[in-house]
Nucleic acid binder design. Structure first.
Lengths: 394, 394
DNA sequence: ATGAAAGCGCTAACAT
DNA sequence: ATGTTAGCGCTTTCAT
């Protein structure tokens, strides 16, 4: 026995985690080889029934649980996929955000879990990065996680190209809601959604003077919605942008946007405010309401994402529904596919969104219509830079 | 070289995951031993500066990322903690629950993450069990996860004693919000919270005829709240339970409870309804409102948990605030502690809750008072009978 | 300061 | 049907 792990009463036993029962222990106690135990554990055939039963007994009795580290090392796969996302705000007592902001990634997570659940062997490792922390922290976190998983789901395009390259060099990566680079991407069709929303404002409600509450510069979602807004303005003569405020997707920044807007109310009063997400729309509505401005009477307001509170708000918020959960599901599916067949061509999957018409845009009280938005192409010519292409299946 | 992993152009290379660069590759390319590379990777001293730099270079160049499986096997620790929870409902399109029910575990998760974030080396593996699935599925999921982690955080006391024993035999376990068994437990002081809430109803608002919307039998939180309610009734002569409905913590089941209540409205009209959580309170309020029953005018209603929608509901809901995030933090702290010092004595930590007075109990419109509940002891002697029964007299 | 080598617990190819 | 054994990639002790 050249390679029997210490299972005698020697000192080596002490260093082993409490209760650590190994395959060898089971094998010895059942009087079979480790190969046989392994076969039993994995329900393989080529084991006599009586043997199987005996081994099974010992397993129960000893409470044996295979060590995944050893399994992984041997099988060259960890049966774990990782999910990375960014926590934007960290204020623990911001009740508003606690009630609202949580939803995005939590839904994503639900989607991923839903996909994973049927396959007992996959597990999900989650890691979040924090916006306010340095890039080096991100790097060390990501390196650590990359060494622990078979594949990675990354929310948003927040990590640098260089880092992404390094990661995807090691494990397959699927980007969720980010700009296509050299990995698979699954994202909502923000462009079409925003286009439909703003077009509704302009064509149905005859709005002409829009104010834009934008999201962070570097967030792909925000960028796409912004570009769509600009494109609609461009293609509708007579419409103008009266101003813009850059928020960070939180209720608070929406309130700030509202205050900024009220500051220029006299001179540059808009007839509609387009917010990059629902949270900010909610914050904006609050500050407008405090100032006695009526919505949609004095001004229309729209959001994006379709979070629950926007639905029950007074007035209810017109917005675009993002299939967040589906996003998680598809991303997960794609990763699992790729893990199974590494040869797959890179692909960007665009998920359709719904336009949700409610009260804040000026539609009649009680309106709550949801209609799928058909895809519209991005106007290439006006986009100076090498536009992210939403290519189908590579 | 007896043990150099295949890094030549041999067939073995093909079976290695794409981009898999090993410590050996780095060592060879830097012209040092694996021991030295390992030292550099872990920033240990006893390496000459020039050597370190050279190795570091090769690491960058090759994009080397240590394989955690191998590290774990060698170091006998995985640097991963697992969190297990139960998904109660699975209806994908139940918008109400999407907006509300998500919050509990998500907050817990946030707490855990918050604790983990400073320690780069820990990662979090999450697994959810599904109520409607069989016990054997739970077992296989839990076994799998137990083999992948150093310690486990388990939400609620939903797993059998036997299974729990087996798990905690292998890795340290901290139960969150469950009944203390033979592991560490971190939980909110449900008993004191429910006692304060019901006492408020009885003493401040002079309620006498209570209806109870209970949670699932086997959920510890529900059980504790139920027992506190009964104890308050018992100690306040003249109070009675007019009826009880057993829900499953969802908005829908709250609505059903409301309908059941309305069914016996004539004969057994209560003056207050105590719901085991906010979701059900919300559902109940909806059905009462549809039936034209005014709250708190005709009847008072209370919830539990303090979820955001209850705060902005019309009327706002009187409830008990659970420190969900803190629960996650403490549980994680405890697990990390135990991992560091396995000898720790088993302990149950009770976290204080807040009584949140709002409108639904009959407090004046606009009320939103939050006060910490001081701990009250569970009355042992009176808990003689095993089964909770309705219609008891105080 | 650096290297050689013995494991860590498990899998799977190859015997028998 | 069952056993033998050579790794999997890394850490760490013990030499040097």
């Amino acid at each position: 026995m050249a390679h029997t792990p210490a299972s005698d009463g020697s000192a080596a036993t002490a260093s082993r985690p409490v209760g650590m029962v190994t395959l060898y222990d089971v094998a010895r106690m059942a009087g079979v080889s480790t190969a046989t135990v392994s076969r039993v554990v994995h329900g393989q055939d080529r084991v006599r029934e009586t043997t199987r039963a005996r081994v099974q007994d010992v397993i129960e009795q000893l409470g044996y649980i295979p060590d995944n580290a050893a399994q992984s090392l041997s099988r060259r796969r960890k049966d774990v996929i990782g999910m990375v996302y960014v926590e934007r705000e960290r204020k623990e007592h911001d009740v508003e955000n606690m009630g609202l902001g949580l939803l995005y990634y939590d839904e994503l997570l639900r989607g991923v879990q839903a996909r994973i659940r049927d396959d007992h062997h996959w597990s999900l490792l989650i890691t979040c990065l924090y916006e306010e922390e340095g890039d080096d922290k991100d790097v060390s976190r990501l390196m650590a996680v990359a060494g622990k998983v078979d594949g990675l789901l990354i929310g948003e395009g927040i990590i640098s190209d260089e880092l992404l390259a390094r990661l995807s060099d090691r494990v397959p990566v699927v980007i969720i809601a980010g700009t296509p680079r050299k990995t698979d991407v699954v994202k909502a069709d923000n462009h079409s959604g925003a286009t439909a929303l703003v077009t509704h404002l302009v064509e149905t409600h005859a709005k002409r003077r829009l104010f834009h509450v934008d999201g962070p510069d570097d967030v792909p979602d925000a960028r796409e919605r912004r570009m769509a807004l600009e494109q609609v303005l461009r293609t509708h003569p007579g419409t103008i942008l009266t101003g813009r405020y850059q928020g960070i997707f939180s209720v608070n920044s929406g309130e700030e946007a509202g205050n900024a807007l009220l500051g220029q109310w006299k001179e540059l009063r808009p007839d509609a405010v387009v917010c990059a997400n629902d949270q900010m729309a909610l914050g904006l509505l609050r500050s407008l309401s405090r100032a006695g401005v009526s919505v949609p009477g004095d001004v229309a307001v729209t959001g994006f994402d379709d979070i629950y509170p926007g639905r029950i708000n007074e007035p209810s918020i017109t917005t675009v529904h993002q299939p967040m959960r589906l996003l998680g599901e598809r991303a997960c599916d794609r990763l699992l596919d790729r893990l199974a067949r590494p040869g797959l061509r890179r692909r960007t999957e665009l998920l359709p969104v719904d336009l949700v018409l409610r009260e804040s845009c000026g539609c009649p009280p009680g309106t709550d219509i949801r209609q799928q938005v058909t895809r519209v192409r991005v106007a290439r010519s006006t986009t100076a830079r090498p536009a992210p292409r939403a290519g189908q299946e590579g």
